[in-house]
Computed example of a mutant assay.
Amino acid sequence: MKKLVYDLLSPGVCNLLNPTTIYANNEISLGDIEIYVFDCNYMLHSNLLHSMIFNTSRDILIEQFKYPEGLGKYDYIPEFAIHAFHSDVRKSLLMKTDAFDYAQLGTVYRGLEPVPDGEVIELYSGVQHIPLCQMSGFYGKVPHYKQFMDIFSLPEMTLLSSVIDYFITHGIEFNQVHLYKDISDAIRDVYVKGVMHKGLKKIWNRIFCTGMKSMLC
Rank of each mutant, 00 (worst) to 15 (best):
I183D: 03
I60C: 14
G12R: 03
D7F: 07
Y191E: 12
F138G: 07
V37T: 07
Q128H: 04
G140L: 14
T21G: 05
L216K: 04
V177W: 05
C209N: 13
I53W: 02
Y36M: 01
V108R: 08
T21Y: 04
T169G: 11
D189H: 00
D101P: 07
D101S: 03
V192P: 07
N18W: 07
I203D: 07
L17I: 00
I121L: 02
I62F: 13
P114V: 03
I28V: 13
C14D: 03
M157F: 10
F152R: 07
I151W: 12
Y74H: 01
M1V: 12
I168T: 13
Y166T: 11
D182E: 02
E79W: 15
H129F: 14
D75F: 02
A24L: 10
G126R: 03
V13R: 15
C209F: 12
D101N: 10
G31Q: 11
V115F: 05
N26P: 08
D185S: 10
S57G: 05
N18Y: 02
G12F: 04
L94D: 12
F65D: 03
M196R: 01
V5Y: 02
E156F: 02
K73I: 08
L94N: 11
E156Q: 04
I172F: 09
L216R: 04
P68S: 07
K141I: 15
V89T: 03
F80R: 15
L61H: 11
R58P: 02
E69V: 12
Y180H: 06
L48E: 13
E113G: 06
T97Q: 09
A99V: 14
R188A: 08
H86S: 05
L49P: 01
I130K: 03
H144T: 01
P78G: 14
S92A: 07
L154W: 11
A24P: 04
A84G: 12
N205W: 15
I207Q: 06
D182C: 02
K96P: 06
P116K: 08
P11Y: 01
L16K: 10
D7C: 08
T97E: 02
G118V: 07
L44E: 11
K96W: 14
E69M: 03
Y23D: 04
L94M: 15
I60V: 14
T210N: 13
F100H: 15
V192R: 04
G118Q: 09
S153Y: 10
H144D: 04
G199H: 00
G106A: 10
L112K: 02
F54H: 08
K91D: 11
K3A: 13
I35F: 06
L17M: 09
L154K: 08
I130N: 11
Y191N: 07
N47T: 08
